[in-house]
Design a protein around this nucleic acid. Structure first.
Lengths: 336, 336
DNA sequence: AAAATATGTCAAAACATTTGGGAAGATGTT
DNA sequence: AACATCTTCCCAAATGTTTTGACATATTTT
């Protein structure tokens, strides 16, 4: 482990000079700078992030906060893409990515905020968590730069997928294919759900159709068993819907199971649509009509905004950025 | 940001005493220890990892190395589970997890090993990468504690999924269901592939069946388009197979597409099986017969072994640990 | 009573880095 | 020649922690 001291020794200069030469300060002669950099390279020097962080309070490490539970964001195709995109974006700017947690399982657990400070993280990206958790709120309200994904706090930059527009496009498309009896199995209570649901009702009104109450049902995101049940309920109605919208693509598989188990065919007997645009949806028969969320863009923007916030805290504004999705017309919705 | 100095001041003791009291050294009186810990808590103290790492050369941070490309491990259901399991396991022992990279895109890129030392990572878990990459080899051969997943180096602990046994079980099961004309679309060249393929041939011999050469084909992992092509090729043979084994569950979806596009039904006309045990495979009709890899166990063991290696470098042996998978009998293989 | 032992605490050094203040020498200006 | 101005470099302090050897004080042994 070779340090600046070693370089200073071999170059016959002070440690301070080495530091300044390496960091490109102006008060170092051109030739010494070149000489120092050359020997640094020859000796195989690379800085020690701990020492630097200790001194500068900048770690070039950013934290990412995903929920830790069974339904971890990691195993969620959509969020996995978001995370990967974040990773690529921060790395391209010379930052590292560390998972933030609170050592739930341990005796001396610490809060998210404490963990952030303990590691000297420059900022945190929060996604896919329970935003009502007091510890999340504490973190958001602290002076740590934070960007949230798909949730809006007043004083933090948020990157939002355009859920309202998404569900509107989806519904309008289904309508354009002749469907009027449209059921909507929406997700469990959350900001995203609220946004989609109110947009759904607004669009229903705009289109001038009427949706019976029993067509609007609830199933937690990714809960295939519940969507299976709800789908069966819908199919068993005296007047079953001709088209069912699901909370997400993954959950739609529960619906598919219910439909095929009834001996019905998609889209000939029932049309369906999901939400998210997970990869596998494109590889089934029929390809799943859905709203492709731009997961990569969500992640990229989150990373970029956070780094802006970190590097130029004075001049960077808190923003609420909206990322558009895109309707994907598979073959799971039939024209009738 | 309150430090030991502050605690020392309010307690009227020296910084050294605070450090020892907090770290449980036994040369501190019981009452002072309690008093110091109490005020530390009251003041909201938590240690500064940079300072500690700088002094002790232990970061309580471990690196994880997944491939950075398009087919990132993050977006791969199986590896996402492995990663999540690693995360849970290291966190339960008080460690953090940081993505390792080499800043590919940047001008002053550094090697994986340099990055590891730069961050002072205590160890690295390597999975899902090109193990022939010289930089990986450099890292493995360094003095950094390393655990590899699904790849064997001589001097590092490896956690291996039992691929040989897995494919044997799968093949034997298919055989037991009466299939003799069994095709195998295997993955692209890699250690995992080699292991599965040689086990496949061994089992074929043991079972006393003969598999024509044109039944054994290749398609990269997760390449649904290629498996679709290869499946069509197989179906078009004068004597098509009655059962097709795919490189992985995801890739199997390409096969399913090919089969249904020919108007054939699974499993009535053709039986299929995947490998991995991704979640969605259980939610399709018919549920996909596959070999469930124990992704969580792979991740957990990797984390545990690495931490052992970090904490007891002298007494911990390099081990090659085998994690068993489990046959999942879905309904995609018909008894004939 | 002196010597040995045990206990509790402290001061200082060390880890690798950054940075403001200043020193020394060179250059330019009058 | 005197002075100011640059340029180039160094010094020393600071960041928060751990560790080591030293030093008191108290207790036990001779």
């Amino acid at each position: 482990m070779i340090s600046m001291k070693d370089i200073a020794a071999t170059c016959g200069v002070s440690i301070a000079t080495v530091s300044k030469a390496l960091n490109g300060h102006k008060d170092i002669g051109e030739d010494t700078r070149i000489y120092i950099r050359k020997t640094a390279k020859e000796l195989g020097y690379y800085p020690n992030s701990s020492a630097r962080t200790l001194k500068t309070n900048r770690s070039y490490n950013i934290g990412v906060l995903f929920v830790d539970e069974a339904n971890s964001g990691l195993m969620h195709d959509h969020f996995a893409h978001v995370l990967d995109s974040i990773k690529v974006a921060v790395e391209s700017k010379g930052y590292d990515l560390t998972f933030l947690n609170c050592y739930k399982e341990r005796e001396n657990r610490i809060s998210y905020l404490e963990h952030t400070k303990y590691r000297g993280l420059d900022g945190v990206i929060i996604a896919c968590v329970d935003f009502a958790d007091p510890e999340i709120v504490e973190l958001v309200e602290s002076n740590v730069p934070v960007v949230t994904i798909d949730y809006l706090f007043n004083n933090t930059t948020a990157i939002m997928s355009n859920n309202a527009k998404g569900i509107k496009e989806l519904l309008t498309y289904v309508y354009s294919q002749g469907h009027r009896k449209i059921a909507y199995i929406h997700g469990a209570d959350s900001a995203v759900t609220k946004s989609r649901l109110s947009s759904f009702y607004r669009t229903v009104e705009e289109l001038g159709i009427s949706i019976p109450d029993e067509y609007v049902r609830e199933a937690a995101y990714r809960d295939t068993e519940e969507t299976e049940r709800q789908t069966k309920y819908l199919l068993d109605l005296p007047t079953p819907p001709t088209c069912i919208l699901f909370p997400d693509d993954f959950a739609a598989f529960g619906g598919i199971k219910a439909i095929t188990s009834r001996g019905l065919k998609i889209p000939d007997d029932v049309s369906i649509a999901g939400y998210d645009g997970i990869v596998i949806g494109k590889h089934i028969e029929p390809p799943l009509t859905t709203l492709d969320q731009d997961a990569r863009e969500l992640g990229k923007r989150a990373a970029e905004e956070l780094i802006k916030l970190v590097e130029k805290p004075k001049t960077t504004l808190i923003e609420h950025i909206i990322v558009e999705g895109k309707l994907f017309c598979g073959k799971s919705v039939k024209k009738i």
